[in-house]
Simulated assay, not measured.
Amino acid sequence: MTQNVVLTLQGVTKRFGGLVAVNAMDFSVQEGQVLGLIGPNGSGKSTTLNLISGALPATSGSIALRGTDITTMPARDITRRGISRTFQLVRLLPSMDVLENVMAGAVFGHRRRWGTDARSYAMGLIDRVGLGGKAHARISQLTYIDTKRVELARVLASDPKLLLLDEWLAGLNPTELEIGIDLIKSLRDDGRTIILVEHVMDAIRSLCDTCVVMSSGTKIAEGPPSSVLTDPEVVRAYLGDDDA
C-alpha cells in the first residue's frame, strides 16, 4: 500500500444549534486504505460523511483532499474532484433502467464520459458488480441487493479517488451479506480508497485496515480492528457500562 494521504480531517466540528453532532474530528485516510468509521447509532458517523461529501457545511475545522482544502466547496465540486458516496437508503432514479442509472454517474462524476463511451463504461461496471444481464431492467424489478449493486456501480462510474460507503451492507440477509462483503473486498483488492460506515463487525474485521470509533460525536479510539474492537471504552460505548 502506498502511503499517500488522500483525505485529512483536522478539528472538524458540526453543530446543529446547541447540539454538537461531530466534535473536533481528526483522522486521515491513506491511498488504497479501507478505513472503518464505526460507533453506536447517533454517534455522528453519517454526519461525518455528509461533511466530507459536502452535503453539510462544517461549523469549524478543515477537510483536505490530496492537500486541497474542500471544506467550503459545494457537493457538486467535491464530486468532480473525486469523492463519491452511497447512502443508508438507496437513492436511484426509478424512471430509468439500470444502465441509465449507472450512466448518470459516468456523465456527472470526476472523470466525465459521454455517449457511447459512457454507455460501454457503464456496461462494464454493471458486470463488475454482478448485474450482468440486467442492464435494461427497471429499478422496480430488482431485488434489494441488486438496487444496492446499481447504486455502487453508479458511484464507481464517477471514477472516485475516495469512495464513501454509508452502511452499504445494511439490511442484507446472510447470503447477500457474504456476497456484499466479497464485492467490497474486490474493490479493496483493486486498490480503491474507501471509508466504510458499518455496524456489521464481521465486515469491519475482514475489510478494514484501520478503524475510527465515534461516540456522541467524538473520536474515542483509532487503530486496527483487532485492537479497537476490544478496547474497553469502545465496548462501553456499544454496550453501556453495566453490560460492558
Rank of each mutant, 00 (worst) to 15 (best):
G42E: 10
I63Y: 07
G180W: 14
P224A: 08
L56T: 13
Q141F: 00
M214C: 07
D97R: 12
L51D: 05
L49V: 15
P57G: 13
I220M: 09
C208D: 10
P74T: 12
V212D: 07
G133T: 03
G17H: 08
T86E: 15
V235K: 12
P232Q: 08
G18N: 05
I63H: 04
S226N: 05
C211W: 08
R138M: 05
V102P: 00
I70W: 03
V12F: 10
D77C: 10
D146E: 11
P94Q: 13
H136N: 05
T72L: 12
F16C: 11
V29M: 01
G36F: 04
V5S: 05
L169Q: 13
K185I: 08
T2Y: 02
G115D: 14
T71R: 15
V34D: 10
V234A: 03
S186E: 11
S215C: 11
A170G: 15
W114E: 09
S53V: 02
L37Y: 10
G132V: 01
V197N: 04
L196S: 12
T116E: 11
A75I: 13
A64D: 01
R85P: 15
Q33Y: 06
Y121W: 12
D209Q: 00
P174V: 13
R128T: 07
Q33C: 03
P40H: 01
D241R: 13
R205S: 10
P74R: 11
D243C: 02
R138G: 02
G124M: 02
V6W: 01
G240H: 10
V107E: 09
L152R: 11
T147N: 03
